[in-house]
Computed example of a mutant assay.
Amino acid sequence: MRHALLCLSLLAFATPCNAQEAIGLASPEVLTRSGLLQHILPRFSLKTGIRVVADPVGPMRLVSEGDGTRVFRQGDTVYLLQIEAEPRQERFRDWLRSEIGQRTIESFTPSEGPAFVALRDEAAAVETVDFEGDAALGASLAQGKCGRCHVTGAENRMKGIGSTPSFAVLRSLPDWDARFQQFYVLRPHPAFTQIPGVTAPFDAERPPPIHPVTVTIDELEAILAFVAATGAADLGAPLIVK
């Protein structure tokens, strides 16, 4: 009975009962207020399945002085990450220093102050685009969950919305992987998309304008594997991304 109650309690927060315990990350108040952590932590979780949450007494710490790994700066302030010798914490450090992590940091626009800049001089090797999901399953999921707006393949090539880019066109972009991993925060997706354990529940006063789409982390990994194996559209000239 107690176990059942625990499971119901966890489900209320969209977190499975067998999920790994989240890792706490402490940071200076000015960094917490900036919104950067709310921007990068869900994206790391979505990519790796490792949950990191803001926690003033967490074992990982972002500091502006002392020892640690230099990860990014804002203006003249350089932030360092202090971690313990623990695999999941080391994965978070390496992700911050990877190309995908750097792009994630620099895609955030703070409401105040200068933009955050990743410190590439100490960056780790570029993280390769290697998704381990089931590409065949991803093709089916893409058509079922994305096909009402996007052309995902030959099966629905005449059924997408004309103003919405096809998966083949998106695959042509140099940062296609980051765009697909972060799709749920790119308009208009936040209005109707839920990633259990990552996104907050819909505001009761602002219900989804269309039937909501729920995608699990495993399902998104399968969709990413499908897109990675999909040929990019030949548009006749290199794309210029603004």
Rank of each mutant, 00 (worst) to 15 (best):
W176P: 04
R51L: 09
R70L: 12
M60Q: 07
D234T: 00
G133N: 12
E112C: 01
F13N: 04
L173E: 13
W176L: 02
R157Q: 14
H39M: 03
A191P: 01
F108A: 12
M158R: 10
V215Q: 03
A22V: 00
A232H: 04
G197A: 09
A136K: 09
S45R: 11
T109C: 04
G101R: 02
L37E: 10
T48V: 00
G197E: 06
K145H: 11
A136T: 09
C7I: 03
L36G: 13
H189N: 13
L186F: 04
R206F: 13
L25Y: 10
A135C: 08
L220N: 15
D76G: 09
Q74G: 07
N18S: 13
L224C: 10
V185W: 03
I23W: 11
V117A: 12
R51Y: 06
P28H: 05
M60Y: 05
F202D: 10
E219N: 06
G113Y: 08
F131A: 06
P174R: 00
L220G: 05
R61S: 15
I223F: 09
G160D: 08
G58E: 05
P59L: 01
E106Y: 03
A19P: 11
K242E: 14
A229H: 12
I40M: 11
F226D: 08
L11V: 00
A115M: 02
I217K: 10
S111R: 05
R206A: 14
G144N: 13
A12T: 02
Q38D: 15
H39G: 10
R61V: 00
